[in-house]
């Protein structure tokens, strides 16, 4: 255990901890853009600069390990000035279009500009422009909003093991792109979208469906494979408009393409909305009473004529445990046979 002082507060930290982690654990906030708790740090954005006694220049707290008796100051006037300048430089080359940005209200860059009260741009000059839109169907890549924090590059490599994107060119021309600047063609897990601190990466499905206001967030479990990732459905006007997953879930917020982007079937126009009975080869819409009465009387007749073992039921690995329990109970107790199974083998 290491003892240090941060902003006059005595803090105890583990010896492998960074100054940033120690400060945050002690409830002292330090702004960051490139740092992400699940990814390696590289001190890229410079926002987490702090002063440490005995070190002549400010250092990045995300890459500096704690030391015994270290004295850290996180928000001296000098540091605050530096942070503002960094933010002004970032914003000088960032579209000022928060009014129409998908990420507004959920954007770290916007939050920081708000916090430090940056509204003017003292650094007018050349801007990066990107005219071509990435044609992939899942992820909107608005590279004019990219601040080159590299979280997306890191998550793709370190978490997903794919490496679909990386830095290309240098200096002002630097950009993050797939090989040969082609359209993105990857696993489309959307981990990059989840970690992007600005509006550079968003889901194409999200567009114009609603931002943070009047959104009901419901925590649930993914409906696809058996991993059981925890999801949060963002609901507006009885429509799922976005899916994400919190970092605090057991799946650490990571999802796959199906879990993150595969939700629109719920509101598909193809959904069945009325019970149907086939009459002379054609489906006819009927009431629930008619459908249920017809089914029950047919089943009763078949049981009477051929015995309960002439009836079978296929339950569903898609349905809840409770529904499966009811279904097998129905087949066993109401019909009277053990002919019940589901697709575990298929």
């Amino acid at each position: 255990m290491i003892n240090l002082t941060i902003d006059g507060k005595n803090v105890i930290a583990g010896k492998d901890m960074t100054v940033l982690d120690a400060a945050r654990r002690a409830g002292i906030s330090i702004p960051t853009l490139c740092h992400h708790p699940k990814l390696t740090s590289f001190g890229g954005c410079r926002l987490c600069l702090v002063e440490i006694e005995g070190i002549p220049r400010p250092v990045t707290s995300c890459t500096t390990l704690v030391g015994e008796n270290m004295v850290v100051k996180t928000s001296t006037p000098h540091i605050v000035e530096l942070r503002k300048t960094i933010l002004e430089l970032l914003l000088s080359d960032h579209p000022n279009d928060c009014m129409v940005c998908e990420k507004a209200g959920d954007c770290t860059l916007q939050d920081l500009a708000y916090y430090y009260g940056i509204s003017e741009n003292p650094y007018e000059g050349e801007r990066r422009t990107y005219e071509t839109r990435d044609g992939n169907p899942f992820i909107e890549r608005d590279m004019e909003k990219c601040i080159l924090c590299s979280r997306c590059v890191k998550v793709c490599d370190e978490v997903q093991g794919v490496g679909a994107i990386d830095f290309a060119y240098r200096g002002f021309q630097s950009k993050i792109c797939p090989p040969f600047e082609r359209d993105l063609d990857c696993e489309f897990c959307g981990q990059c979208v989840a970690v992007c601190p600005t509006g550079a990466l968003t889901g194409k499905l999200w567009a114009h469906k609603g931002r943070q206001k009047n959104v009901n967030k419901v925590d649930t479990v993914c409906t696809y494979c058996g991993t059981g990732c925890n999801l949060t459905l963002h609901v507006k006007n009885n429509d799922i408009i976005r899916v994400d997953s919190a970092m605090s879930t057991w799946n650490e917020g990571w999802l796959c393409a199906k879990g993150r982007f595969g939700y629109s079937f719920v509101s598909s126009p193809d959904r069945l909305k009325t019970p149907l009975i086939k009459k002379r080869g054609k489906f006819k819409e009927v009431s629930w009473d008619e459908a249920l009465d017809f089914t029950a009387s047919k089943l009763k007749n078949i049981i009477k004529k051929h015995g309960a073992d002439s009836v079978g039921g296929l339950s569903s690995a898609r349905c809840t445990t409770e529904e499966n329990y009811l279904f097998q109970k129905f087949i066993r107790a109401a019909v009277g046979t053990n002919n019940v199974d589901h697709c575990a083998r298929l």
């Binding site: 058996g226 569903s316 690995a317 499966n324 097998q328 019940v340 199974d341 589901h342 575990a344």
Partner: peptide, 13 residues
């Protein structure tokens, strides 16, 4: 599948 374990546990066998 999301609940193949639950379907087995609940006796859909």
């Amino acid at each position: 599948q999301n609940n193949v374990q639950g379907a087995c546990d609940a006796g859909a066998l």
